[in-house]
Nucleic acid binder design. Structure first.
Length: 569
RNA sequence: CGGAGCGUAGCUCAGCUUGGUAGAGCGCUUGGUUUGGGACCAAGAAGUCGCAGGUUCGAAUCCUGUCGCUCCGACCA
């Protein structure tokens, strides 16, 4: 491709709307342009990258035995009403009406559609398992689209759905997809981690997220330095504390002290001159099965997902002042576990180890000091309730420490079970002539987001550093001065040689100075540059420069092809 | 949805307080000199100042409304 024929509107300055580096660079390199908030056009270079990512995904999905289909983006409301998601999905669903006032939406995901297809075309266990996928644009009316194509309202996604007769079959396919995903992200040349994600309130569901590690990632990733443990913030476990038998406990009784208007942990800790770690934070929650008091150490943060799981409830919310008053007898800020009645008490492991604990006295403007677990209060349940912290001991190997990095979620794999098939009466006949709901899995990869994540991970002050597997072109041929006959001829010859061999190559045939051209080529991030200038040409040589390392090599002009093919492997 | 901010040339921004000819840099066009990491000279094109209404002899500037965009939070996961 000739640069003079290509639409590549590079920008020298950073458009002010772009905050993260991938967004800035995609705009500056002329890969995307915004049409509306969270809606982007992919220009020729950007689209090539997108198609390459798609192609890698497609090849690995096919290799894993999945079949590609293509479902509509325009979806009738009825199917969504069957599963109840027409109501549940809320404002994030783009809803439209046709001329007859019939309700439709633009698909944010396709569980209902694929389940409908399968229930209508598969009747017997003999036709299972099956894994169907598509690569298609999804629509989600994000509350706040941001970071360019990283979180947009229309975005490309590969979504796969598998259907099984047995749990074992699902487990097998889940592993198969796990492997396929690893191959995909390996081929993309990205550093990633697979985290155990919290599956929410849906029992039995198990899911893992593929996270590309990058400083600008939206979610923290907790992983062990010693073993392969890796989890999201919600799911990261905390190793159980071993209660030492030699631990001394404070004598006597808890003492009541006046703490006027001191409500927060910080306020009370400062007022009484104790460390937050010595305090027992008491949070009152409302659930569908009554109020609950959750205890964590003052310097720890309660993880509601864990609490939900421990209590086995679906609804969980912090109680308002009225409920707190009813439960503790005191206003907000003075709750404590001592003599707390008619409420289930759940404590984090770390709370049991507090000697001389400080906590609310369940009385306005009073706290208790010298509180000890076992003697002064007891919990109905002791469990892991808090968010893990960096440097915590790994909950799996209990040997090394946890580290935290940030990640961008680019893929997730999920065991759905029968959540959709039951609601949609999607059944098959098993070998015992029994009618059973399909057991399902689903597996997604964000295409545009993956491209953006690659940039977040690989860039420098000059621009993007594409992995060769998804670079828009592999090689850029750059004559220092295209007007000079000998440079031009060599450049065109090399360009043709490479093209004939199937190498993806651009020829920078633009007039103008070489500095401008090199800046553009680096900004766009072509992995290999071949620079043809008068100095080298005198010796019959051209420069071959790698974007990733900056490494430069003088190569005989006749051997460029071999060199390039060698690098591309 | 709450809070903050911004809409002036393709991009980055000045001008607005104190109303009176529409500005700069980069980019673009033409000509010339240049050509190894975003050159220089000369000439030029380009904006209904987001939109609508109001005040005024006169509005980019003041007032009201509206639309769009960005950030923080809430929400979602």
């Amino acid at each position: 491709m000739l640069m003079t024929r290509m639409l590549v509107p590079t920008l020298r300055e950073v458009p002010k709307e772009a905050e993260v580096i991938s967004h800035q660079l995609m705009l500056r390199a002329g890969m995307i342009r915004k049409l509306a908030a969270g809606v982007y056009t992919f220009l020729p270079l950007g689209y090539r990258v997108l198609r390459k990512v798609e192609q890698i995904i497609r090849e690995e999905m096919n290799r894993a035995g999945a079949q590609e289909v293509f479902m509509p983006a325009l979806l009738p409301a009825e199917l969504w009403k069957e599963t109840g998601r027409w109501g549940v999905y809320g404002k994030e669903l783009f809803r439209i009406k046709d001329r007859h006032d019939r309700e439709f939406c633009l698909g944010p995901t396709h569980e209902e559609i694929i389940t409908d297809l399968v229930r209508n075309s598969i009747n017997s266990y003999k036709q299972l398992p099956v894994n169907l996928y598509q690569i298609q644009n999804k629509f989600r009316d994000e509350i706040r689209p941001r970071f360019g194509v990283m979180r947009s309202r229309e975005f490309g996604m590969k979504d796969a759905y598998s259907f099984h007769a047995t749990e074992e079959s699902l487990d097998q396919e889940y592993q198969n997809m796990y492997q396929a995903y690893c191959r995909i992200f390996d081929r993309l040349g990205l550093e990633y981690k697979v985290v155990e994600a919290d599956s929410g309130a849906i029992g039995g569901g198990y899911s893992q997220e593929f996270m590309v590690i990058a400083d600008t990632g939206e979610e923290p990733v907790y992983f062990c330095e010693g073993c392969d443990y890796c989890a999201s913030r919600d799911a990261a476990g905390v190793a159980e504390y071993v209660v030492s038998e030699t631990q001394t406990k404070s004598d006597g009784k808890p003492e009541k002290v006046k703490t006027p208007d001191q409500k927060t942990i910080e306020e009370v800790a400062q007022f009484l001159k104790v460390k937050p770690a010595q305090m027992i934070k008491t949070l009152i929650y409302e659930t569908e099965s009554g109020p609950v008091a959750a205890l964590v150490r003052g310097d720890h943060e309660l993880n509601e997902a864990k609490l939900k799981k421990v209590l086995a409830v679906e609804d969980l919310k912090l109680a308002d002042e009225k409920v707190i008053k009813k439960v503790t007898g005191a206003p907000l800020g003075f709750a404590g576990p001592v003599k707390l009645k008619n409420v289930k008490i759940v404590a984090d492991h770390a709370v049991l180890l507090i000697e001389n604990g400080v906590t609310g006295a369940n009385e306005q403007d009073f706290h208790l000091t010298g509180v000890v677990y076992g003697r002064d209060y007891k919990a109905d349940v002791v469990a892991d309730l808090r968010y893990a912290l960096e440097h915590d001991v790994c909950p799996r190997c209990k040997n090394s420490k946890l580290k935290v990095k940030r990640g961008i979620e680019v893929g997730h794999i999920f065991k759905l079970g029968t959540k959709y098939s039951k609601k949609m009466k999607a059944n098959f006949i098993d070998e015992n002539n029994q009618e059973k709901p399909f057991i399902m899995g689903c597996y997604g990869v964000g295409v545009g987001r993956t491209a953006a994540a690659a940039i977040e991970q690989k860039n420098d002050k000059d621009g993007i550093i594409w992995p060769i597997s998804i670079a828009p072109y592999q090689v850029a041929v750059i004559p220092v001065n295209f007007d000079e006959k000998d440079q031009r001829e060599v450049a065109e010859k090399i360009y043709k040689e490479l093209s004939v061999e199937g190498v993806e190559v651009v020829l920078d045939d633009r007039p103008g100075r070489v500095g401008m051209k090199l800046k553009d080529m680096d900004l766009i991030g072509f992995p290999i540059k071949i620079i043809i200038g008068p100095k080298g040409l005198k010796e019959g040589k051209v420069e071959l420069k790698l974007r990733s390392t900056g490494e430069m090599k003088l190569v005989d002009k006749g051997e460029v092809l071999q060199e390039v093919l060698g690098i591309l492997g």
